[in-house]
């Protein structure tokens, strides 16, 4: 079975970096990637994470009050 990923979407690239900093500090495996075409035509970046972590990802972002535009499973 291949790895299941999810992505967090943001309004601003700088917000994505802020989220990356918070999630990495919480010990989660995340990576900034270009937003996949099927999700958005935006030229910005999003944050990829292991889908199994998705509730923890949401929790950390809310705790740190990092605003995000959405979470999608890839």
């Amino acid at each position: 079975m291949s790895t299941q990923y999810g992505v967090v979407l943001f309004d601003s690239t700088q917000r994505a970096i802020q989220a990356e900093r918070a999630l990495k500090a919480a010990g989660l495996l995340v990576k900034l990637i270009p937003v996949p075409r099927q999700i958005s035509s935006d030229c910005g970046v999003c944050l990829r994470f292991l889908w199994q972590d998705h509730s923890r990802v949401e929790e950390v972002l809310r705790d740190h009050r990092v605003a995000f535009a959405g979470i999608r499973q890839l």
């Binding site: 690239t13 700088q14 970096i17 990356e20 900034l32 990637i33 270009p34 937003v35 970046v45």
Partner: peptide, 15 residues
Amino acid sequence: GRSGHRLSTAAAELV
């Protein structure tokens, strides 16, 4: 903050 490659994201992180 323009492209998603690692050099661009590293620059965005620095900013």
